[in-house]
């Protein structure tokens, strides 16, 4: 509509030049380049945000890094009273909980993606897709409350206690499946994390599976392959890289998830192989202690933890993106 109005006015006389004139406060030429530079500026702002993350966290972490040096990463004491800070307990807790989450979430997410794209009756596909989206839309803090008040007690009674008893006399496993059966701890955090990252992995996997060319699948079925054989021999090999990307994307979420973990991990700054024991992740340590950090070295150490989390998640998410971009290009 606007275009037509404009071209009716003086378009013929100014055929060679610009007839742009609707923003009256500026002539067309100036508006045109202002708009362009505003766009470029906003786009560069994205880079500024990323740079700002890195610079501000490094500056904030500097007192701690210069005091403890690189050994901050592998020191296992975290003691605000003696002002000794090392990141190892938090790093270990982050890796253990994210590891548990990935081990549980990946097969479930894969199963759901296969079910929605291959097996489910047509009428069920859309509602299932919405259910998965809903799972992704629930705020983290609600997973935390549900985990603490509803999941943890049931988990303690029906899973933790029997499992601890079952492995009591098995060497090695008795140190892994150990800890107080109180419901909260690293295993609980890992399971709740698994439910939280599952929808992200599943929806990316679903999109990836949809990119498998139909004739590849049909040629599989044509030679008499079963659903499972088509999945295993055609879909999985075709999507391997992108599916790994989806898993890394989920891992990136699990590593930095804060509120749900803070509710249920039990907050203990020690390293243990026992997955039922309370622990801490990088994010939950920051969330718990930052407001109460009165000494500057304490808050600086917490920011150093944040810097570590920034670097780890940046690498994981960048790898995920590279793997996922390969399929779209």
């Amino acid at each position: 509509m606007t275009l037509v109005e404009n071209s009716n006015t003086k378009a013929h006389e100014e055929a060679a030049g610009s007839f742009q004139r609707s923003p009256r406060f500026m002539n067309g030429e100036a508006f045109n380049s202002t708009f362009k530079w505003l766009s470029i500026g906003s786009a560069l702002f994205i880079l500024v945000i990323l740079g700002g993350f890195f610079v501000s966290l490094t500056v904030g972490a500097w007192p701690a890094l210069s005091k403890f040096g690189l050994s901050f990463i592998w020191t296992s004491t975290w003691n605000p009273v003696t002002e000794q800070f090392g990141a190892l307990p938090a790093i270990a807790g982050t890796l253990i909980t994210s590891g548990i989450a990935i081990i549980i979430a990946v097969p479930l997410a894969f199963a759901i993606a296969i079910y929605i794209t291959q097996l489910a009756p047509r009428w069920l596909r859309h509602p299932l897709g919405i259910a998965i989206e809903l799972l992704a839309a629930i705020p983290s803090i609600i997973y935390g409350m549900w985990g603490l008040f509803f999941f943890a007690p049931i988990f303690a009674e029906f899973i933790q206690a029997p499992v601890i008893d079952a492995f009591e006399n098995v060497p090695f496993l008795s140190t892994i499946f150990a800890g107080p059966a109180i419901g909260i701890g690293m295993a609980t955090a890992g399971i709740v994390l698994a439910i939280m990252i599952l929808p992200f992995i599943a929806s990316v996997m679903r999109d990836v599976i949809d990119t498998v060319p139909k004739r590849l699948k049909e040629s599989g079925y044509a030679i008499g392959a079963t659903d499972w054989e088509v999945t295993r021999a055609i879909i999985i090999p075709h999507c391997k890289t992108a599916m790994t990307g989806a898993i890394f994307l989920g891992l990136g979420r699990a590593l930095g998830e804060t509120m749900a973990v803070t509710f249920i991990i039990g907050n203990a700054n020690r390293i243990t192989a026992a997955i039922f024991a309370p622990g801490n992740t990088i994010a939950s340590t920051i969330a718990n202690e930052f407001q109460e950090a009165y000494s500057s070295i304490h808050s600086s150490s917490l920011i150093a933890l944040g810097l570590l989390l920034f670097i780890i998640t940046f690498i994981v998410l960048a790898v995920a993106r590279m793997m996922l971009n390969r399929i779209s290009s």
């Binding site: 990323l50 966290l57 990136g252 998640t313 960048a318």
Partner: peptide, 23 residues
């Protein structure tokens, strides 16, 4: 920029808190 934006999309939100706290 698209790549960086995709990474920022999935960045832990607690880092945004620390970043703004610092600046």
């Amino acid at each position: 920029i698209r790549f960086v934006n995709d990474v920022l999309l999935a960045k832990p939100s607690i880092l945004a808190g620390l970043f703004i706290y610092e600046i």
